[in-house]
Design a protein around this nucleic acid. Structure first.
Lengths: 134, 134
DNA sequence: TTAGACATATGTGTTTGACCTATACTGGCC
DNA sequence: GGCCAGTATAGGTCAAACACATATGTCTAA
């Protein structure tokens, strides 16, 4: 792939878009990973299907397509999913992914970790609500 | 500050520590920021006190001290907190931070965003529990 | 025959967080 | 008076995660 030099990208500071307006997004780190595993637990899917369905579990505006395919291959390299080209299906070549036992175990651990995160955030929100009068 | 070259850091792959054992931590991105704002809403504090109290709201094992002081100064540069050296207090020089109105508004937006995140994760967990039999 | 949806992929910059080192003041102990 | 541990703030550096951009091929319907 060829690339030419580009001009410096739009300079918005770390999280400020325009003065006095910050971009606040509270997201769970690497949430797409467990989301993919969860979708694949239900049935094997190929990448493009995963992209379409991801918002159902991971919320809106989460996925960068390029990173998603990269992640899928990383998961495969780690033995969490397996894949094969599906020649039978019509249309362009699709790689269909399936969850492995290892992947299933990791999903379970993610679920556990996510419950913990829920608890932490709940603690925050309780404390926030407690003194909202201030 | 002087630094010599160090050898490449401990090579653990992206998330794998030892074969078949992954490090799973579900955390909200930049959760320390709202945590600091929340603590400062309650009363002005200096950095070291914030470090001590942070686990109360942000959960265990979250804070890197260096990053925390950096973050505090970033927040100040953005007008979300203000600070001054507290000469009166005994011991080493302390910089006491206070929440600004702007910071208070940002905290409110964080709370909102965190509730949304709670909902997203809850959606995930519901779907996870739904078919746990698989 | 071509435009657009489908499908997979790579290149690369930016942000966040982990880990490490540096510095200085204070109080208690020997 | 020298040393050490605890208090307090801060900078350097790097890798992972994420955002943004581009490349490339197939197939269908107009």
């Amino acid at each position: 792939m060829r690339h030419r030099h580009r001009h410096p990208r739009g300079v918005r500071s770390r999280r400020q878009t325009r003065p006095g307006h910050w971009h606040v997004r509270a997201r769970v780190e690497r949430f797409v990973e467990p989301s993919l595993l969860l979708l694949l637990r239900e049935r094997p899917l190929h990448g493009y299907e995963l992209i379409e369905r991801l918002p159902e579990v991971a919320g809106e505006g989460r996925v960068d397509v390029g990173n998603l395919y990269r992640l899928l291959r990383a998961l495969e390299a780690e033995g969490l999913v397996s894949s094969e080209w599906s020649a039978e299906l019509p249309g362009p070549a699709k790689r269909t992914y399936e969850l492995t036992d290892e992947g299933r175990r990791l999903l379970d651990r993610w679920a556990e970790a996510l419950r913990q995160a829920q608890a932490d955030v709940q603690g925050f929100l309780d404390r926030y609500d407690q003194d909202e009068r201030r």
